[in-house]
Simulated assay, not measured.
Amino acid sequence: MKYQEAVIEELLTTAFQDEALRNAYYEAAQEKMFRKGDLLLEQGQICRYCYTLLSGAVRGFYLKDGREVTTSFCFANDVVMSLESATRLTPSPESFEVLEDSLVEVVSVEKLTLLRTQFPVLEKVWTLSMEAYAIWLEERLASLQFATAKERYGQLLERYPEIVRKVQLSHIASYLGITLETLSRIRAKG
């Protein structure tokens, strides 16, 4: 996945040297501060914005039978949105909660779609981003099905070394599909 991220970053760096693209994008985008506890998107709402974290942390979660089930974590340079909701214009099945004060770049999905039509390089970035997301989903599914709890925790730390400082252990346990007690045992054996 690192290779794809590098290709996307290089494409964006080159693309933003185009003054017309840069001006059009920054006319559509807004930087906003969100506070810890804010929801970028609440389950049941239609996702109308694409959020890029410039700094901070966000978690995705579902509410099932009154219990929160954490599905994802996002940090600086990650994109946050419900792809299903934004694409199908249906209620989002998940919520996205700000875990620490975060600076976020916000662009409406509608304007982003228009920019992708206007500037083919943005369509290429979008396609590569969707491929990277699909690969992440495949890796996540394989991890949940085949890796031990200890292996899943190790994979999470490898991907996000800072996660233990930024995220409650109960959210990490939920993401890993284990109890808090099991996570504590794994961490103690370190």
Rank of each mutant, 00 (worst) to 15 (best):
K124R: 14
C74W: 04
T113V: 12
Y49F: 14
R140G: 04
L89M: 11
Y26A: 13
D38Q: 13
E105R: 12
S95D: 13
M81C: 10
E162D: 12
A149S: 09
S102Y: 05
L53T: 10
L40R: 10
R59T: 09
T52G: 01
S184Y: 14
S72I: 04
L115S: 10
R88S: 02
G60W: 06
V80K: 11
A24K: 00
G44K: 14
L99T: 13
Y49M: 09
R152E: 09
V98H: 10
I8Q: 11
R165C: 02
S82M: 06
I163N: 13
T71C: 07
E131F: 15
Y26Q: 15
R88A: 03
R140T: 08
L39R: 05
E162S: 10
G37T: 12
G60A: 11
V69R: 08
Q145F: 02
R165K: 10
G44T: 07
Y153S: 03
Y160I: 10
A20T: 15
Y160V: 07
V98D: 09
Y175E: 07
C50Q: 15
Q4G: 10
E9F: 01
A15P: 12
A147R: 00
A132C: 07
V167T: 00
E5F: 06
M130F: 09
E68S: 11
E138N: 06
F73W: 04
T52I: 09
S184V: 14
R165A: 12
I172D: 04
G154H: 06
L103W: 12
V69Q: 11
T14F: 09
R48A: 12
R159S: 12
Q155I: 01
E162P: 06
L99A: 14
